[in-house]
Design a protein around this nucleic acid. Structure first.
Lengths: 217, 217, 217, 217
DNA sequence: CATGAATGAGCATTCATTCAT
DNA sequence: TATGAATGAATGCTCATTCAT
């Protein structure tokens, strides 16, 4: 079973300058972030209290407010750090892959993999953050949009080179892809079942690429 | 813009005939349910206070607890009544339709239509209720399962008679269908955009039935 | 185990007059009183709600207020009916008994017997009613005072005729007697243990009559 | 009139010596405890609201829950601190006293003295706490049991050395002693009358030691 | 870098009680 | 004789958040 790693992302220098190098997060901050993530694995965000976080982290509640705007800020921050990491990885994954369909396959696999490895991440994303309006004006949302845009570009590329049919709106295609991935993973996340990236990707692609109907001739 | 109708389901008929018949809901109950639904259109469940509901309904807070278990119970109850109504309609819709693909098309259309007509309903379903474990042991969940089962049977039927390919697990197909519908609608719901059942159904089916790839001649 | 009888006292005419004879309590009233008593056996007064009483009685809450002033009135009423019954019995018991000590013995036995047979009664008396000031201005308190006065008179009688020492204030003697009885029974009531009137009376009298010290010959 | 002292027990010493030492209670906690005790003198526990306590203490309601489990926890805590203090005193009082009867006399005196000096204490003990089942599984109950056990041992000692008659069960003797004390004090507490430890002890012992009957030559 | 102490505002829920029918 | 519908008022408790040290 893929254990969610609770080691808080060591932030590389967000923007590097000459001097002291990327300084690591102070211990308190790390403890808080980890405690929070651990808690998220057990219960939903709104059910988590600052008192709980502080206790689990072994610090005082006040310290949370030293490092984060507020409770929701903590959520966004943690999510953002996760996401940034994933996007870097994702870009690398896509490098050197030829063909729109192949890229889509890789994207699906990568997407499912993250969800599979870090269920909390998945849970946060589609159960906590997305429902709130503040999300849509957050940094995180911009990251997600960037990611989402990449898929759209791949689809456009596919349409251009004839790999993908042109009689269905690309945006709809994108929605179906994301919708399928998430629905499939949601089930796994909620029921804490196994999620097998390889198998799921295989089946999903088979389906998405060629549809529901059997091969005509 | 499709206005969500706030008329609480009149269960049974209000005017009795014959004997004791199931009596109509008392006015207070109806007012509460409607006020609650109206509120749900504006804000998320956890942000709605009982005081607000009572005020909007023009009754006292205490009355809420006369008719519903608690705040969450109110949510479930309202949802359940909605759902029951929809399922009746849905069964009727499906009557007389031949062919698995045609049935799926109808189902998709019906599903989107409900979401389109009753955004609150959609919102409740995938933003409020589903995230909580108590949902999965509720009456509502049973209704949803029944509904879900119907789709699976249609798919099985399609596989049997050759309408649907057999090399992809039926359950995955179901997940993709539901996932697609919901992702597509979610966008509409969240951004309060138009949702056109006819167009969406058309595109979705085009896609789901024949996949992403262009026709191979 | 002496089961508390839950049959509400059929009130004899409180004060008789010529006409229609003691009319029995209406069924609703009886059901309420019985339900209440049954509830008192399980939990303390303040933990019992009118809703509960009504439900157990199979009537509406409103009916309680038809027959009783309010919740506390119900308590007092029930208690009073119990008490009146007991006092009648008690007076009869005392008839024909000679000697202060013998009378005291009989009183102790009677007192313990009631507690033993009707634990609810005991519980109400020393856990619910007595703590509240309204008790001390109630009918019930007058009954208790009457009862209490009888004991004092017996003691006085004993002092006069030399059966009882005169160098201890009679009122203190009375307090010790009541205190002993109640402490002994309280234990039984709270821990739901057996209470044996005969044995307890025997031991208590042995002690109260001759004190803690061994016989000095 | 013996005024109940409202100074909350300073646990440990406030001024540290040596190392880390148990630090004194924070001011808020002390204020809460004192306010609560003061309130208990005026009304019964269930009639005291958290709002009241907070107001009287000059703190916010929330602070109550920082220092105490809940309202009932506050009651138990306050009682426990009182009790612990008393038991220490009590053990010292008993030191150096010879003879079971003398010890009993001292115990009675001490017991009445506490009640007399701290009526709230008495009130809490036999009107609030004792009626609830949670009491019987509390720390406080253990303290009371310890205290109660001491009396039993004294009685046993008296039986052994011939000071106390052996034909009455020691436990019953204990019950009579406690029952008498409490009944006698209860009257004082409820009617806010004077309680004179010296006189009461004198009379009670006279009675308990030698019983109700006059001296037989 | 971190904490102890304290707060302010909210909020679900309970319950006895009333009254027209 | 009894009920269905509705209420008013209270209350315990939670929680995110602040700030001096």
């Amino acid at each position: 079973m893929a254990r969610t790693k609770t080691v808080s992302v060591e932030q590389g220098k967000s923007s590097s300058e000459g001097s002291t190098r990327e300084r690591p997060f102070p211990p308190g901050r790390i403890k808080i972030a980890n405690a929070f993530i651990a808690l998220l694995e057990q219960k939903e965000f709104s059910a988590i209290t600052t008192a709980e976080i502080a206790k689990k982290a072994g610090v005082t509640e006040a310290l949370i407010y030293k490092y984060f705007e507020d409770k929701r800020g903590l959520l966004h921050q943690v999510l953002k750090e996760y996401l940034e990491q994933y996007l870097v990885q994702f870009e690398r994954d896509l490098k050197g892959i030829k063909g729109a369909l192949n890229k889509i396959r890789k994207l699906i696999w990568g997407h499912i993999s993250v969800y599979s490895a870090n269920r909390v991440f998945a849970k946060i994303l589609f159960l906590e953050v997305r429902n709130h309006l503040d999300y849509y004006s957050s940094d995180t949302y911009q990251l997600i949009r960037a990611y989402s845009k990449i898929l759209l570009e791949i689809i456009d590329e596919g349409v251009s080179n004839g790999e993908i049919r042109s009689d269905v709106p690309p945006k709809l295609i994108r929605q179906v892809i994301f919708g399928s991935i998430e629905h499939v993973c949601l089930t796994g996340v909620i029921f804490k079942g196994e999620i097998s990236p390889d198998d799921l990707t295989e089946d999903l692609c088979k389906f998405i690429f060629r549809g529901i109907e059997p091969v005509r001739e």
